[in-house]
Write a protein that binds this DNA or RNA. Structure first.
Length: 281
DNA sequence: ACCCAGGACTGAT
DNA sequence: ATCAGTCATGGG
């Protein structure tokens, strides 16, 4: 039994494979399978129809997770009009939407992400889910709760291939579990305040904090600077200029991309990742 | 063998 | 304020 959802200005593949989520994979017949919360979802897009292998009461949750209630046209309209590179990235990946993911899963996943390749991040996340997450049938596991990680041992986390990130993930889980930071209130805080709060956590700097704020806390303006986007920004906006400082980039980002800078960042990021891999029209 | 990977942190200039 | 070294581990 499956549901049909009408969609527009939406591209499932770009949305799920642009690097913001780590638990989605392709299955046979064009289906995507992923674990969200305590459910395994199966999704497939046929033009303006989204097929969902699920019960009808889950549809609204899927629409919310995929940000289908938002107008992509309105968001893109806030982008700088004279930015040809950004416009091209948007055209090439039209329909990419920033997801509304669960904050703890997002935080933990990106703590695991530092100096790791995306395939390895996905592997680590699956190992964590298998070992510490609740089984939800068909060999799927929910992402582990904060408490489950907080109670884990350093050795157990090392076995999930976290390496030097193990102690950061453990300490972060324990801090959140003990209420050392206001983790549940992030969504209702000012952007700057929420950022300050997140970087108190061990293993969480400005980049990972912005991942959490954009991908799971609804802050459209959160622009994360990683090695890929830094390379793209330097090439596109600071040509023939070496040694562009992190501070200069921040200044440029704040004045150029507007209130949905995070969305612009994700389009530029995905375009940079797929550069020279796809034929340009 | 060597190098790098969606970084963060420390201790030097 | 920048900068190199360090932190584990798997893959090219």
């Amino acid at each position: 039994m499956y549901q049909k959802i009408n969609v527009s200005d939406f591209d499932l593949a770009s949305t799920l494979e642009c690097g913001q989520a780590f638990r989605w994979s392709r299955a046979n017949g064009g289906w995507f399978v992923g674990v969200v919360g305590r459910e395994a979802w199966r999704l497939r897009q046929e033009n303006d129809i989204l097929l969902c292998h699920c019960s009808p009461e889950i549809v609204s949750g899927i629409q919310h997770y995929l940000s289908l209630d938002r107008s992509l046209l309105d968001i893109v309209a806030t982008f700088p009009a004279d930015d040809a590179a950004l416009r091209d990235a948007v055209r090439r990946h039209w329909g990419l939407r920033v997801l509304r993911q669960e904050p703890w899963e997002t935080l933990a996943s990106f703590i695991a992400s530092s100096t790791k390749q995306i395939v390895q991040i996905r592997q680590i996340v699956e190992l964590l889910a298998h070992r510490f997450g609740e089984p939800i049938g068909n060999d799927f596991h929910a992402f582990p709760t904060v408490e489950a990680i907080a109670r884990a041992s350093h050795e157990q986390l090392l076995e999930c291939k976290l390496g030097f990130r193990a102690k950061n993930l453990l300490a972060t889980a324990q801090m959140i579990d003990s209420g050392a930071i206001k983790f549940d209130a992030l969504r209702s805080m000012e952007y700057g305040h929420a950022l300050e709060e997140l970087v108190k956590l061990p293993g969480v700097g400005e980049k990972i904090a912005n991942c959490v704020l954009l991908f799971s806390c609804g802050f459209d303006q959160a622009f994360l600077i990683d090695v890929w986007i830094e390379r793209a920004l330097c090439r596109l906006y600071f040509p023939r200029k070496r040694n562009v400082t992190h501070r200069q980039l921040r200044e440029f980002i704040g004045s150029h991309f507007g209130p949905c800078a995070g969305w612009a960042q994700q389009y530029l990021f995905f375009a940079e990742r797929t550069r020279n891999k796809k034929t340009r029209k």
